[in-house]
Amino acid sequence: TEAEQLTPVLLDGLREENLQFISKLKDSSGSCAVDVSSVWWGAAGYRELCVVTACESSVSLWKPQAPDHWEKVYTWQLGEIPVIQIIPVPDTCNLVCIALGNLEIGEIRLLLYSSENDSFKQSLVKSGNIKAVLGLRDGKLISSSRAMQEQQVEIVSLSETGRCKDRQTLMPPEETVLAFAEVEGVRDALVGTTAVNSVVVWNLKTGQLLKKMHIGYSYPASICHRAYSDSGLLFVVLSHPHAKESELCGNPAFRVIAFNPKTARSTGVMFSSLPPGHTGRYLEGEVKDAWAAAVLTSGAIAVWDLLLGCCTALLPPGSDSRWTLVRWSAAGAGLLAGRADGSVCVYRYA
């Protein structure tokens, strides 16, 4: 039954479910979702956490309606370029940022509501051969792009009216930057992972490229999801879509590596693999605080506690539809899980 398909399986050693099904939203158009996210939306001092779903040609905003019901309040229609992803931007309200393109990102657009003329609208933030983009604190957006042989790493400050208030460039490394993560604990530090498996560190304020540190060849194409500084070390949470299976740690979906930024030496701290008896490689995922979630090739979703170093929840694939997307909510312990049939389920993780 559908209820069974939406219920996490109990893992050995866990006495109760820590992923609770809350509600489900389904687009009547039957479009296949390419991404899902949450966004703060409101007016006159009141705001609520809404869900945003994207399919290739449109992006929809869903508001919560009691009890456990979602209402689609607006759909932005996009042009001929397909939507690839929704880019969450912290510290913003009434603003949805999306990336459009074919094999790689060609445009970044803002979708918003304009109270000036009481209408929903969209505006272009950036176009080009964009390799990576991330929403930063204080309504900023960082991206890496290539023009000819030159790489540009640029920060754009967004206004709630959809304007780009300010643009700042950071010193680019030689290799293409494929992912970014802000460093918790050091306000102006930012890290990136590159196409040749290095972690680079910037000073956001000055734009300086501070350090380049190699991750190693065992885990190619590593992507950084989170970084934090503690006790003089830089801890980076990485995913490894192309990691080789080993007897020691199986197929690790995420790894935590500690770098000494002064010497560029590193050591593995923790890896997150599936519990025995479950198979599947990492397809895509997201990290929030100490929680990591991933969609696996088996069509299941797994959740790990990075502090405990173990898998804490598993959503099995349904018999008729697989899980395809997993995102953490912008607030609280919400988990958004998307299925191949276009439906999105909201869970609470505790």
């Binding site: 010193m171 050091v186 102006d188 530090a189 560190v201 000073n203 000055t206 300086q208 490229l209 501070l210 350090k211 500084s229 006790s231 003089g232 070390l233 830089l234 500690a258 770098f259 000494n260 930024p261 002064k262 010497t263 030496r265 590193s266 050591t267 701290v269």
Partner: peptide, 23 residues
Amino acid sequence: CSDSDLGPISLDWFEELSSEAPP
């Protein structure tokens, strides 16, 4: 992880690297 594996650790690594890196 010990100091010997990772080399000498500095709590002020960000400020130190910022002062050493080219502007």
